[in-house]
């Protein structure tokens, strides 16, 4: 499992000024609290691309959002295309989110992933350290974790000593998801986070985020 973070200058305005967002769409996206973002510059392809199943995720998130929280996709309808890569990770997507909507977004991503990918997941929880500005927080008493909090932060977990186990076929491993989100706080400062892990890992991150929000460390 890994949760990385880095400072970024890409905010809502950055994305709303992209060429694949028309002036008309820009106006309607201006009040959004959450935008689903594309990947740009995939190999030789020009234009934005979204991970496969983004449309399904979008409909799901829309159906669960409270009325006062607007979520949308940062692309004109005619330019919407999905990229099916089919690898070890289930790519959920990239998001930009206003700070106050972050717990809602992460909670709904967890719910979506649980329903779609993790229903039969028997994996055990791994230990997580989440990073804040200049401080490191151990979420669930994990003594064997190392955090280096510089501009690019890498969270690593020292693997516990295990008995020798035979290799499991990769397609029988618990599914893992990957997604990133940029949080924009009330001062306009932006920080990008990237998560890779299983459902249990994500549950731990959600708990950690709730603790951090509760402690006011952000």
């Amino acid at each position: 499992m890994s949760l990385t973070s880095k400072e970024t200058t890409e905010n809502f305005e950055t994305w709303l000024n992209k060429p694949f967002v028309s002036a008309e769409l820009k106006q309607s996206l201006a009040d959004a609290s959450i935008l689903i973002l594309p990947t740009e510059g995939f190999r030789n392809h020009e234009g934005p691309l979204f991970p496969v199943h983004t449309s399904e995720l979008y409909e799901f998130l829309k159906s669960k959002m409270p009325e006062d929280t607007i979520i949308d996709i940062c692309v004109d309808s005619d330019n919407f295309k999905e990229l099916a890569l089919h690898s070890d990770y289930k790519r959920i997507g990239n998001f930009i989110v206003k700070e106050m909507a972050l717990p809602l977004l992460i909670g709904l991503i967890l719910l979506y992933a649980q329903q779609k990918y993790f229903k039969d997941d028997q994996s055990s929880s791994t230990q997580v350290v989440s990073t804040t500005n200049g401080a490191s927080t151990t979420v669930n008493n994990s003594p064997n974790t190392t955090v280096v909090n510089t501009n690019v932060t890498v969270v690593e977990k020292e693997k516990p000593v295990e008995e020798e186990k035979p290799p499991v076929k990769k397609y029988h491993n618990p599914p893992k998801i990957k997604f990133s989100y940029t949080v924009v706080d009330t001062t306009g400062a932006c920080k990008e986070f990237e998560f890779e892990g299983t459902a249990k890992d994500l549950e731990t991150v959600v708990e950690g985020l709730n603790k951090l929000n509760g402690d006011g460390d952000r």
């Binding site: 392809h45 449309s55 949308d72 309808s77 990229l83 099916a84 890569l85 089919h86």
Partner: peptide, 21 residues
């Protein structure tokens, strides 16, 4: 494993082509 850009898809129930929004 194929790597595909899905440009257009339709619903298997009503046949409608998917349009964002």
């Amino acid at each position: 494993s194929t790597e595909l850009i899905e440009k257009e898809k339709e619903c298997s129930i009503c046949g409608k082509v998917y349009k964002l929004r």
